[in-house]
Nucleic acid binder design. Sequence first.
RNA 1: GGCCCCGUGGUCAAGAGGUUAAGACAUCGCCCUUUCACGGCGGAGACAUGGGUUCGAUUCCCGUCGGGGUCACCA
Length: 551
Amino acid sequence: MDYKDLANLIFPEAKDISYYEEKYPERNLKEGAIVTRIAPSPTGFIHIGGLYQGLIAKKLAKQTEGVFFIRIEDTDQKRLIENGITEIIESMDKFGMNPDEGMINETESKGAYGPYRQSLRKEIYQAYAKYLIEQGKAYPCFCTPEELDSIRQKQEQAKIRPGYYGVWAKCRNLTVEEMAEKIKAGENYIIRFKSPGREDRKIKHHDLIKGNVDFPENDQDIVIIKGDGLPTYHFAHVVDDHLMRTTHVIRGDEWLSSVPLHLQLFHEMGFKPPKYAHIAPIMKNDNGNKRKLSKRKDPEAAVSYYVEMGIPKEAVTEYLLNIANSNFENWRRANKDASIDDFKLEISKMSVSGALFDMVKLLDVGKTVISKFTAEEVYEMAVEWAKEYDKNLADTLENNKEYALKVFGIERGNKKPRKDIAKWSDVRENISYMYDEMFDSQKQNYDYQVINDKEEINKILNLYINEYYDENDDKQTWFDKIKELSGRLGYAKEVKEFKENPDKYKAHVGDVSTVLRVALTARTNTPDMYEIMQILGKDRIKARFEKAIGI
RNA sequence: GGCCCCGUGGUCAAGAGGUUAAGACAUCGCCCUUUCACGGCGGAGACAUGGGUUCGAUUCCCGUCGGGGUCACCA
């Protein structure tokens, strides 16, 4: 009985690894092309951090004419959720992150390096595990969870490093005959890697983001094949990224401390390891403590949150890019209309430590992004969002597209566009006073600020609509008339004049304007009143004034 | 606790052995012949700390403190 016999006893059906090595050859890409991937577990919605990693990975691949693929890591059968894969793919799609290869829905995939779903790769992992067993580099372990527990307790009591290694690795020293006997007797077992490492030796690792890092060698005999026959993350990572010919592994920095293990596995398997880039997580300030954005506690951890809020994907992408490379902002200022694809991401410029998530800044990016859209684009995107989250708004907009375009066109398209919409969920509040049905269905609160006398307000409104307002006036004439009205009623025509001689006047032209604005829209802050009046038209202006006076 | 990583304004962050220590968001003030938004100008605001090396350290080294990660048949 030798290792080979043992391997055959454990995995009688497994193919020789040469089969897979031939089936998945080196990729034929141009020099310097980067192959990256995103490898989520279908355990629920995509995390903003996952989107961030995917964005970096995809950009690196794109920039070098490489390949970006998606691999579903579903080896933990206990944590799977229904339609988990679809949900991931759909939310990636919403942010413009379509992979070149990988799963395209719950069961189908594209690309020549599949399957792209780990649970479908069981026989591949077993072939490679068998390969290790044949060489005496892996072995079956019969320890029960209870035994492992008691080992750990002993170690903790003795204050020594916990784990399955050295003298604690009971099963590694079993003879091949003993192992075979136990297997034949039907004992349960898993497969462990037989680590050649020593804890008192150091290894050097150069991480693309973290730089040079020294670690003790790995000496843990970690599990590679679990009781259900599926691999652990560590083993799957090594086999998959080798076979899928990944050149750069972009992942969260919670994996950094596993690097010694992974490098060792690559080495013992005889594979060339990929380059690693360990990305710092996006953090949140929680009562003065920094912590990772948490799926459970923070709604903004889920990418679906941004979709629901109607924060455009361009804004999320730009914000994330800014966290990745802080020179992005400068680039954006210098290239206002360039596509994000033209920005060259440099992985070496990524921050080593995690950034605090800043919603205020994200929304600011959102404002800027939306301000650059045309009225038509704003209309399309607002409608698309509203169809899902504000049906009534969607109907209103679609009922009269031409009108909606006018409304969205106010102060848009010029050099200093308005920046009043940061997300699509702002739209309703922003335009409701331009729609009579919305305006009339809400209880409006008229606060005229300085001029408060009801008689006086009536007088201003009546005089204005009957004697002054003319739809055909240009903006200058329109405003001159408001000044004229102001002067006639004893208000200063110029604000400055009023400030110099406050006793000479009742108030000033700004206060009169405010009366008109409030009567018209029931709010003190609006975009350009001239444009609003132009769109509303004289009859509706009059109706608004009457409504205001009637209250 | 062991191991590893990190520490520049409120936040994201440039930066170099000698700088008036950038910029963006936020904040405050002024201006932009009516509000808001935009824009312009200006203000306030930072190198965690103690030692060393050095003519000189925020920058290099060590300690301390603080923060984060990791130590599963989860990824």
